[in-house]
Amino acid sequence: MEVRTIKVFTTVDNINLHTQVVDMSMTYGQQFGPTYLDGADVTKIKPHNSHEGKTFYVLPNDDTLRVEAFEYYHTTDPSFLGRYMSALNHTKKWKYPQVNGLTSIKWADNNCYLATALLTLQQIELKFNPPALQDAYYRARAGEAANFCALILAYCNKTVGELGDVRETMSYLFQHANLDSCKRVLNVVCKTCGQQQTTLKGVEAVMYMGTLSYEQFKKGVQIPCTCGKQATKYLVQQESPFVMMSAPPAQYELKHGTFTCASEYTGNYQCGHYKHITSKETLYCIDGALLTKSSEYKGPITDVFYKENSYTTTIK
């Protein structure tokens, strides 16, 4: 009895394709271990004539594949690729409408935090270190965002349907971005203890939790000093293409032309909904596939993004 075979390709990165001759009487799992086709788990399936010449994702289970996976995804987590594939199996079914010149995501599976993050990423200057993220990001900007969303979920250790947080998501993504040249110098002034300067680099240099107003941050924000008295913390120097200011959701007025974009969060910790506000020729609110415009805006804002380049204080 002759062994019926077909020729397929296996890959971990969709760049390096490895030619395989597979036995049609055995499952993919018996031949390769966990195997995925377009995100779908085909591990328990036997090869079919229609699979001839198709590319299958496999887990990096030998040295060659491990090197290829690390170079593309910059992670050695053995569960990463499987999590990416199972997320992709959902995100490829989502709709990605162009809204006001940006790629958004039609609401499904509690994905409003991903839509808000995706919209924000198209408006701030950011370059990702893992080629996987950078490639998928370019495709997302062009309207094909399924891979990018699935990668975000995998890097953030999230599953489809789980509630997510924009600030946490951005923080994970910033860790995989090139923020080497970003720098922030802060000064804390206390009447009792004097003053202390701190220099922050990388992710810490672009994120701040405690106030939404970048102007206020430049002037000074009140913080408790270690001595128990009130101290003032203010920005001395900022070198970065953008800054992200966050605070627990509270009524906040966004003035046209003073910011790049913002995240609105309605609801409580267990259950809520994100919308995205962007400042173009007027203010726009993007909620999944829905767009509304207004000249002014007041609502429960939790993150505001500002364009920056270089700032030095005039406070002496």
Rank of each mutant, 00 (worst) to 15 (best):
M1I: 10
V3F: 14
V3Y: 13
R4N: 12
R4G: 13
I6Q: 08
I6V: 14
F9T: 08
F9Q: 13
F9Y: 11
T10Q: 05
T11F: 07
V12R: 10
V12G: 07
D13S: 10
I15E: 10
I15P: 00
N16W: 10
N16S: 09
L17W: 00
L17Q: 15
H18P: 00
H18L: 09
H18Y: 12
T19R: 11
T19H: 12
T19N: 09
Q20N: 13
V22P: 11
D23H: 14
S25L: 13
S25V: 11
S25A: 12
M26W: 14
M26Y: 13
M26L: 13
T27F: 14
G29L: 05
G29Q: 10
Q31E: 05
F32G: 02
G33I: 08
T35M: 10
Y36F: 12
Y36I: 06
L37F: 13
L37C: 11
L37R: 12
D38S: 11
D38M: 12
D38K: 10
A40P: 08
A40Y: 13
V42E: 03
I45V: 14
I45S: 14
I45E: 14
H48K: 14
H48I: 15
N49Y: 13
S50N: 12
S50P: 09
E52A: 12
G53Q: 11
G53H: 10
T55I: 13
T55P: 07
F56C: 14
F56S: 02
L59G: 10
N61E: 06
D63F: 09
D63A: 05
L65G: 12
A69T: 10
A69N: 10
F70C: 09
E71L: 12
E71I: 09
Y73F: 10
T75H: 07
T75C: 12
D77G: 06
D77A: 03
S79G: 13
S79F: 14
F80H: 08
L81V: 14
G82Q: 15
R83Y: 06
R83P: 03
M85V: 08
M85I: 08
S86C: 13
S86M: 14
A87H: 00
L88V: 07
L88S: 05
N89V: 14
T91E: 04
T91W: 01
T91I: 12
T91F: 01
T91Q: 08
T91N: 06
K92A: 10
W94L: 04
P97D: 07
P97L: 12
N100T: 12
N100K: 15
N100W: 15
L102E: 01
T103Q: 01
T103F: 09
K106W: 12
K106C: 15
W107E: 03
A108V: 07
D109Y: 00
D109L: 05
D109F: 02
N110Q: 02
L114G: 07
A117R: 00
A117V: 15
L118Y: 15
L119C: 13
T120S: 12
T120D: 03
L121D: 01
Q122P: 04
Q122W: 01
Q123F: 03
Q123R: 04
E125M: 00
K127Y: 04
K127P: 05
K127T: 09
N129P: 06
N129K: 15
N129A: 09
N129F: 02
P130H: 03
A132R: 09
A132G: 10
D135A: 10
D135T: 08
A136C: 02
A136F: 10
Y137L: 12
Y137R: 03
Y138I: 15
R139N: 11
R141C: 14
R141D: 05
A142D: 13
A142I: 12
A142M: 13
A145H: 00
A146I: 00
A146G: 12
A146Q: 04
C149T: 11
C149K: 02
C149S: 05
C149G: 12
A150S: 04
A150F: 05
L151I: 06
L151V: 04
L153K: 03
L153P: 00
Y155E: 09
Y155P: 04
C156L: 04
C156V: 10
C156T: 10
N157T: 08
T159H: 11
T159S: 13
V160C: 09
G161S: 03
G161W: 08
E162S: 02
G164K: 01
G164H: 00
G164Y: 02
D165S: 05
V166W: 00
V166L: 05
V166N: 03
R167A: 01
R167P: 07
E168I: 08
E168G: 06
E168S: 01
T169Q: 09
M170S: 03
S171L: 13
F174V: 03
Q175T: 09
H176W: 14
H176A: 06
H176M: 11
A177E: 09
A177N: 01
N178G: 08
L179I: 01
C182I: 04
C182R: 04
V185E: 07
V185F: 05
L186D: 02
N187E: 11
N187C: 15
V188K: 12
V189Q: 12
V189K: 13
V189S: 12
C190Y: 00
K191M: 11
C193D: 08
Q195W: 14
Q195G: 06
Q195D: 15
Q197R: 12
T198D: 07
T198H: 13
T198A: 10
L200V: 13
L200N: 04
K201Y: 14
K201Q: 14
G202I: 03
G202K: 06
V203S: 11
A205P: 04
Y208K: 04
Y208A: 00
Y208P: 02
M209G: 05
G210T: 02
G210P: 02
G210V: 02
T211Q: 06
T211R: 04
L212Y: 08
L212F: 00
S213D: 12
S213R: 13
S213Q: 05
Y214L: 11
E215R: 05
E215H: 09
Q216R: 07
F217Y: 04
K218A: 04
K218T: 01
V221D: 02
V221L: 14
Q222F: 08
Q222T: 12
I223C: 15
P224I: 12
P224V: 14
C225E: 11
C225T: 02
C225R: 01
T226A: 15
C227K: 01
G228A: 00
K229H: 09
Q230R: 11
A231M: 04
A231S: 03
A231G: 07
A231W: 00
T232Y: 08
T232I: 15
T232L: 11
K233I: 13
K233D: 00
L235V: 08
L235K: 04
L235P: 01
L235D: 00
V236M: 10
V236S: 03
V236N: 00
V236A: 06
V236R: 04
Q238H: 02
E239M: 08
E239Q: 11
S240R: 01
S240N: 01
S240P: 04
P241I: 00
F242I: 01
F242C: 02
M245Y: 15
M245I: 12
S246Y: 15
P249N: 06
P249Y: 00
Q251A: 07
Y252I: 09
E253F: 01
L254E: 07
L254P: 02
K255S: 04
H256V: 15
F259R: 02
T260Y: 10
S263Q: 05
E264L: 09
Y265L: 00
T266Y: 11
T266Q: 00
N268E: 11
N268Y: 11
Q270P: 00
Q270E: 15
C271I: 13
H273L: 02
Y274R: 06
Y274H: 08
H276G: 00
I277E: 02
T278Y: 13
S279L: 01
K280T: 09
L283M: 07
L283P: 01
L283K: 03
L283D: 02
L283W: 06
C285K: 08
C285Q: 00
D287Y: 00
D287G: 01
D287M: 09
A289K: 04
L290Y: 12
K293P: 02
S295H: 14
E296I: 12
E296G: 10
Y297D: 00
Y297N: 14
Y297C: 00
K298D: 02
D303Q: 04
D303I: 02
D303P: 02
V304R: 02
Y306N: 01
Y306V: 00
Y306E: 02
K307Y: 03
Y311G: 03
T312W: 04
T312K: 09
T312P: 07
T313H: 13
I315D: 15
I315F: 15
K316Q: 13
K316E: 15
